[in-house]
Amino acid sequence: MTADVPTLRTDPAAGTRRRGERLTAHWQTWRPYTTCHPALLGLAGAMVAGGGSAAGIAVAVLAPVLGWLAGHYLGDYFDRDLDAIAKPHRPIPSGRLGARTALVCGIACAAASLLATTLVNWRILPVFACAFAGIVTYSLVFKQRGLAGNVNRGALSALATVVGAMAVAPWPSWALLPVALGFGLHDTASNLIGTVRDVDGDRAGGYRSVPVRHGTTTAVRLAAVLWAAAVVAIGAGALAAERPVPQLAGLAVAVLAGGYAFAVVRPGSVTRRRALRSHEVLVAERMVLAGAVVAGAAGPALAVAVVLPALVVSLFMQARMRARHEFPAGAGDGEDTP
């Protein structure tokens, strides 16, 4: 008689589950509720530059999105030790996404963005180099140094509008300056609200963010000032727009939404969940702001056609994913005051 030889059996269902978990981890890393924003920034830059060919506009929209995804992958890679303390449920610290995989995916997205932009305009190379340096140094250097990290993130949004403009024109026009400045200020403000949400984890990880060093009330007030300056800059940009009235009308809608966002975190009522809610509103409001610029440059019909579906997608994805991405399961209601 021959001895039975044990055979290794694989479980197809287990393999399918693991693949599903990996795909979900990538999806969560993308933060799809934010990716419409860089697309609209690129489109706004392209429209202020006068529009262009279909290929140029496609690059203006796609390249900032690829850069945004690169930032998410690389940011999560560099922040993996901090996330292990504050957000262990996220893809890398939970083990659902390998750190090396995130690094490779981030580099691949950046390379694809670089290839697309240089094919349409090689002059974008210095702008791209600045953007990529900003992505890397945000987590490695500036994020733990207070306001410098918030300004770094704002600068990336400003550069996205420049990339969009240069995808359809050799050089950006002076009309883009107040627009780029406005989006830079706005995303500095919204990133600052994000640090209010993350104050406990940043403090535990040794990150000296503005709310860690100066308190959440100071951080919110500074964010409100930066947001107001952004509104003024975009309003000033309407003076150079082809259609100033639609741009100002869109700006008015954004002001109402932004005002609500800061009312949510008014002094004396700041909690982690309220900071998250405020940031969610600002994520939607900044798309309206980009739509206002598109309306001023190319007309309200195009602005509504692109912004309305972007808002629907973003709001739906935020409702489905946002809180679970920011707070671990069983973390409580988050209504404690930071």
Rank of each mutant, 00 (worst) to 15 (best):
T2F: 05
D4H: 08
P6I: 03
L8E: 10
T10G: 08
D11I: 00
P12N: 06
G15A: 14
T16P: 06
G20E: 03
G20A: 11
E21H: 11
E21V: 02
T24H: 14
A25V: 03
H26W: 13
Q28F: 14
W30T: 13
H37I: 13
L40A: 04
L43T: 00
A49H: 00
I57D: 05
L66C: 09
D76N: 09
D79Y: 10
L97K: 09
G98Y: 06
A99S: 14
C105R: 09
G106I: 00
G106K: 06
C109A: 14
L114K: 00
N121Y: 11
F132S: 06
I135N: 01
V136M: 03
V136T: 06
V141Y: 11
V141G: 01
F142W: 15
R145M: 04
G146V: 07
G149M: 03
N150L: 06
V151Y: 05
R153T: 13
A158W: 10
L159A: 14
A160E: 14
V162K: 12
A165N: 07
P170D: 15
W171H: 10
W174Y: 11
A175D: 11
L176D: 00
P178L: 02
G182N: 08
G184P: 05
D187E: 15
T188W: 01
R197Q: 13
G201C: 12
A204L: 15
A204W: 10
G205K: 12
G205L: 10
V212K: 15
T216F: 12
T217C: 08
T217A: 12
A229P: 00
G235P: 12
L239G: 02
A240L: 09
V253Q: 05
A257C: 13
G258E: 03
G259Q: 08
V264E: 05
P267E: 03
T271I: 05
A275C: 04
L276P: 02
S278M: 01
L282G: 04
V283W: 06
A284V: 07
E285L: 04
L289G: 06
A295D: 08
A295G: 08
G296Y: 02
A297N: 10
A301D: 13
A301H: 07
L302H: 04
V306N: 02
A310Q: 07
S314C: 11
F316H: 13
M317V: 10
A319V: 01
A323C: 06
G334R: 05
